[in-house]
Design a binder for these strands. Sequence first.
DNA 1: CAACCCAAATTGTTGAACAATCCTGACTTT
DNA 2: AAAGTCAGGATTGTTCAACAATTTGGGTTG
Lengths: 229, 229
Amino acid sequence: MAIEAATELESATAGAEHAHTAAWIATVLRSRIAAGELTPGSKLSEQSLSTALGVSRNTLREAFSTLAGESVVTKIPNRGVFVASPGAEEVREIYRVRRMIEPAAALWGEVTPEVLENMEAIVQRAQAARDVGSVPDMADANQALHSAVVGLAGSESLRALMDRVLAEMRLVFHAMASAPDFHSHYVDRNVLLVERLRAGKREEAAAGLRDYLDSAEAELLGHLASEAS
Amino acid sequence: MAIEAATELESATAGAEHAHTAAWIATVLRSRIAAGELTPGSKLSEQSLSTALGVSRNTLREAFSTLAGESVVTKIPNRGVFVASPGAEEVREIYRVRRMIEPAAALWGEVTPEVLENMEAIVQRAQAARDVGSVPDMADANQALHSAVVGLAGSESLRALMDRVLAEMRLVFHAMASAPDFHSHYVDRNVLLVERLRAGKREEAAAGLRDYLDSAEAELLGHLASEAS
DNA sequence: CAACCCAAATTGTTGAACAATCCTGACTTT
DNA sequence: AAAGTCAGGATTGTTCAACAATTTGGGTTG
């Protein structure tokens, strides 16, 4: 049975290149965690996973090393690796980062017409998602917008950091038993943000962003606190 | 002969804990690269290194995975891993990052008296190093100050990013044939920066920092351009 | 019911093996 | 002599099997 599952999983991911197994496995696990198939806190056994993915334990371990570096996964010596399970402190850290780099990018980044177009398309997508009531689409659009904001900085490293942070945010939501309507009230603020950027009101945009992030953090922490685990 | 070298190197690093070999090896390589013992661009052969460090090739590979994630090392498929060798583009990226997070931390970070004390001690160290003419000490103090600036943000992730960036800066200097007097003219600017922070003039501090970083980047790029490799 | 201890499972690490890929240097060809 | 090519040797990529060290889960005992 383990074997059948193995070939099944393997063929499910086939079609893409043999792009050097360890890296490949890392991307597979990354997306599977992001999709919520592997829930926060769950253990990733070397034996099960290596047979399930059809790779050797050594190769899997290599993938674990890179994922641990991205803190997608937490490695506890002699205990194993677990899907990262961010709590209140991690949420605070997430917002410490966002409260620095997002306003900084809004203030000092390079705002080009193309990026503005893109942002406007994104907020429209968010509005459409809200109208339809699709929470996942709204969350996606929201994250896409903030990713685009950081993109103003033009820095690959900051982009990567922001992506990591947003991935951790997704884990926070995955870890929550009841997903509240966290995104809908922020859609309008995002519209306002883009308008300010378009108008060249950088400082207002940055200040609004900081305010936005404070609210979002407070709300998220409130939800976390009310979920006694 | 390979064996003797192995035991020699191993005993050189002994005394510290056997703290899970792969991670341990990663730190050894990290510091050896930071110290300039392993020069940028040089190849890290799996066979040589594994025997030299007294670990198996598999374990070494695990360490490589984490170091590649930190971009301390560059992995080229089927070719091997090399000590990262940052060029002009990487320098630009470094300053893109610094130009965002340092002024942001200066503007919005939490400036406590203790941190100010620490910063003042650091600039004094820099001044002393300049008087004595010790370039390494000056470089260290300089980096320590800017690390402390980012520390104002109170974010572990940003700290980590800044540390990575500063490590990459060291690699840039290690890669340069002739090390110019890059630091001495910036000592005074750092003094001014700390004074502004002490005086609570956040915006001036941030603006000054951005200016500082522009100058430093330009100078560094100039040096790089004049070194035809 | 707490403390202990043993056996089973899991991680940590190694060594050897083999396929796939690359590099080198000699050999051809023009 | 310059350029192309082609074996073969070296290196990386990956797997497998094994063993030590550690954790885990019971079961026994006081």
